[in-house]
Amino acid sequence: MKRYNIRLAGVGGQGVVTSAHIIGNAMSNSGKYASLVPFFGSEKRMAPVEAYVRASDQPIYEVGEVIFPNVIMIYHPQVITHGKSYTMPFYSGLKENGIVIINTDRDILSDEDWKVLEDLNTKVINFPATTIALELAGTELATNMAMVGLFFGITRLVTEEDIEKAVKERFLGNTFVASGGTAALDSAIEKKFKKKVELLEKNMLVIKEAFKMAEREGWVEQEINAI
């Protein structure tokens, strides 16, 4: 059984909660299971944000926050370096043989952190999500997409198509009909819609790159210790 209990930690404005929804919807699209719990403090830009997702190929009954995660995704280096987090230190509650994904260009962990994580036999992945977002989408706002892409790249729980559908659902709503054409829409809506489609394409570029990167770097996981 694959069972991932994930804690997502980032700062306000990065789309942490949005990406939790995308992970959940992608799981649902692939006929698997997910549940999510958002946890906001004061909801403002650059303030700490946490969200929790459970993802599995089996039904999930559990409710509430994930206290003992086996995957921790750090969306912003300041979660670690500035302690911008509700959960301190960032790895508290982490189980043995887990995965920590950190959005960073370089190693930001102290020797002490490394020792703790090595003792737990943690797979630590320093992943330049924001750099990839800037390079491929031209905006750091796609950082969350890179994180989602990498998570699924590692776990292989869903296909790229399942993710794409989830991203579309999130940004275009369920009313979107691909073959419907936009000719009937007036120009203002068309322009807005075109922008959304472009955004969607860029997001997908980022996700696909992260997905491939997991393969290239040999990060793909087969099974994970559930408890």
């Binding site: 059984m1 089996q58 009954y61 559990e62 409710v63 559930a226 408890i227």
Partner: peptide, 17 residues
């Protein structure tokens, strides 16, 4: 109540072990 949902998970984990 919802503690039964958590208990259901514990029963499943136990089966796995």
């Amino acid at each position: 109540g919802c503690a039964a949902a958590q208990a259901r998970e514990a029963v499943r984990y136990s089966q796995l072990e």
